[in-house]
Design a protein around this nucleic acid. Structure first.
Lengths: 196, 196
DNA sequence: CCTACCGATCGGTAGG
DNA sequence: CCTACCGATCGGTAGG
């Protein structure tokens, strides 16, 4: 029966993620965020430095979560297919677990200040590299074939990221089921496997 | 040696697409657009009604192009695999042909006025339906299998749409090659087809 | 296409 | 956490 008490700062981050997602970073105002919390805009600045800080917290937090997950998958021993299924499953779970933050992470990162962008982009690249590593594993094991691995990784990530655009928490599929379907699709494609 | 003379309005639309893509619809100002054309912001209003009109032109024009393409594919007789390859190829070509407008169409449509959003969303759905139709065809021909067709369509569209995020006109792959690779990937997936 | 300008709203600060 | 406020900038209009 214990309700976790979020710090005021954490409440502000949560409210801003929701509004950044709904209206976009630029269109959502500090006054909107304050209103959502029932306080005045000026009061926000006792807890945060700037509007930019909110975007930074959201984007870098999501990046950290995803990177930790992919590193874990690559550290623990699995064969390549298991690794890929785990990586996709982790990604889907992280993203569906916080749709507001994920959407902002995926859509609004462009509005990070140039200096923060310079930190952010390498994190995204590192995440991509984690997937590339799995594909290389798979090729060595003779279970995957992908002529252009970078291309394959971008395609896989596009599919897992697009989930934020249509996923509904009360929909018919659980995150685990979505991840399973997606993995099957990525592994074997659309064509019938047993000739008709 | 003939240079096509664009109307001033068309120049404004082009400049706004570039800026909406770079900065986002809200962050790009009418003064930015005017500066790009070497005129004053107030002068823009001799050619357009409002900033919103610019976004509407960009979004609905892209929607029209894509819808025409998918209708054409479904009208002309092809088998399902050819249809899918053609639909993907058309999509990639339309999107890479105008990356500014495509990016705005894919990212900034949320900022359309509510009344325009109500027109826009059905167009996106109609486009999705065009792809669903191809998958149904394929199932009837016993060449495709997709337990959840809506899911498969969303995955396919995510892959073709993500192209705007990384495609570079001077890159190593032509739009046709990208479409070919993508179609192969979607049709057969990552797994090796001939057992090792 | 320009000058001159409008009211509204923005992110943020001072000072309590 | 609030009141009171700042300079800057926004989309857009009037009138030529």
């Amino acid at each position: 029966m214990e309700t976790v008490q979020l710090s005021r700062k954490e409440q502000i981050v949560l409210a801003s993620a929701k509004l950044f997602r709904e209206k976009g970073f630029e269109a959502a105002s500090m006054r909107d965020i304050a209103r959502a919390l029932g306080i005045e805009a000026a009061s926000l600045y006792s807890h945060i430095k700037s509007k930019d800080e909110l975007l930074e917290i959201i984007c870098f937090r999501m990046a950290d979560r995803l990177l930790k997950a992919i590193d874990e998958v690559n550290d623990i021993y699995f064969n390549a297919e298991e690794k890929l299924r785990m990586a996709i499953s982790n990604h889907v779970k992280i993203v569906t677990d916080d749709l507001d933050a994920s959407s902002v992470f995926l859509r609004e990162w462009r509005h990070l200040k140039p200096e923060k962008l310079k930190e952010f982009i390498p994190l995204r690249n590192k995440y991509e590299d984690g997937f590339t590593h799995i594909l290389v594993n798979g090729e060595n094991e003779n279970v995957f074939e992908a002529a252009d691995k970078k291309f394959a990784v971008l395609t896989i990530l596009s599919a897992v990221n697009w989930i934020t655009e249509w996923y509904q928490p009360n929909g018919s599929k659980s995150p685990g089921e979505i991840a399973g379907h997606l993995s099957d699709f990525i592994l074997t494609g659309l064509k019938v496997k047993t000739p008709a």
